[in-house]
């Protein structure tokens, strides 16, 4: 198999020209990030960048990659997602003070859904809960 970088893999998995979700590409990205020593921190940086894309389909695909990696990758990846460094990038997308006013509703609600599911599924990642509670307090999470 030819060597592929994480960057090449995320570009493939989130390509706006994809007609459907590219599950092979998504799984390849998850597998690759587990193999690399610096995979998780690099993967979260790449994902944050894609999630902030002004193209809705690119952002939604990136969020699907994130969701899938949270299910199939281990603690090293969870720990990176559970840092404010990454959570802040998600917060920027939903906050009207940053990118929130020009982010599609679908992207914002997917981010809030994912964060909520992690507060339940990964209760030991306390920073995720802290970030989610803050969004609730600020009225960005409704209900």
């Amino acid at each position: 198999m030819e060597p592929e970088t994480l960057e090449a893999r995320i570009n493939k998995a989130t390509n706006p020209l994809n007609k459907d979700l590219d599950w092979d590409g998504i799984n390849a990205f998850c597998e690759q990030l587990n193999k690399e020593l610096e995979g998780p921190p690099l993967a979260t940086r790449l994902l944050a960048h894609k999630i902030q894309s002004p193209q809705e389909w690119e952002a939604i695909q990136a969020l699907t990659v994130l969701e899938s990696c949270m299910k199939s990758c281990g603690k090293r990846f969870h720990d990176e997602v559970g840092k404010f460094r990454f959570l802040n990038e998600l917060i920027k997308v939903v906050s009207p003070k940053y990118l929130g006013s020009r982010t599609p509703e679908k992207v914002k609600s997917k981010i809030l859904e994912l964060m909520y599911s992690w507060t339940l599924g990964l209760p030991h990642e306390v920073k995720i809960s802290e970030a989610y509670q803050m969004l609730k307090k600020q009225g960005i999470v409704k209900c």
Binding site: F84, I91, S95, P96, K127, E130, L135, I140
Partner: peptide, 15 residues
């Protein structure tokens, strides 16, 4: 230097 166990983080953003 490269740290393989990088525990550094930033503060939670205020929105």
């Amino acid at each position: 230097t490269v740290s393989f166990h990088d525990d550094s983080d930033e503060d939670l953003l205020n929105v």
